[in-house]
Amino acid sequence: MDIIQMKNVSFSYQQDQPVLDGINLNIKKGEWVTILGHNGSGKSTLSKLLIGLLKPSQGEIIIDNITLSRETVHEARKHIGIVFQNPDNQFVGVTVRDDIAFGLENLQVPRNEMVERIDKYAHKVHMAEYLNKEPHNLSGGQKQRVAIAGILAMQTDIIIFDEATSMLDPKGRRMILDYMSQLNKEGVTIITITHDMKEAVLSDRIVVLKKGKIIKVDKAKSVLKDQETLEKSNLELLLPLKVLNYLEKENIDNEKVRSYLWELSLTR
């Protein structure tokens, strides 16, 4: 079943300058899809459309059988959550506890249940001992973990990570990636928006955007190797795959090395 359907979606801020142009994309329940693209390719606009912060100038978006419109958007947001890029600009609460509670308060979850869920999901992202901390005493990675807990507590089926790791240090980045794969294994549909190929490796499918258009949608394995497509969108191949392509070009036929490089690129 397709949990997300985008049918011929376009969006423009100004006439004649489409930021997104004729996007068709279906995402299955439990799938992990990476959206790759250069700076300004429209990938963040895509995430804002999915969460109903922007309205398509053309086409329609269906989330969990709800066609997005002004009337249904609030209902649809109960099914889809998003972690944004800047850890500081999405931390609403005065403390970690208050921030995780924010979404639950909006959903009118009764207080008893709220307390339970906060506790549960703070544990899940290993932030339980920080519940009373204020945001300016947390690192960027910790704030992003709180953001994840806030969405998990709302028990949405889909989570979008919109360049959620780009402002973090390597350790913070690794942790967020670990949570992504763990959540995906538990059945959460995950959409990562990034230009970091290492984030794309673990996903099921990859969508490559260039100047507002989808130039490729395919299984992750085949896109990762597609130098031509990736370079069109300012992206770089993973190093083992670069070597693999080089060996092919030079006609160096060592099957053992080739299959090894291929395996290596798919493990993180």
Partner: peptide
């Protein structure tokens, strides 16, 4: 300006509706 814009987006994305009834953690 940029911050308040992003914050408003983040709040809306987490189902905040201005003026709507909310339950409260702190009582």
């Amino acid at each position: 300006f940029k911050r308040s814009d992003e914050l408003a987006n983040a709040m809306e994305a987490r189902c905040f509706i201005p003026g709507a009834t909310r339950t409260r953690l702190h009582q």
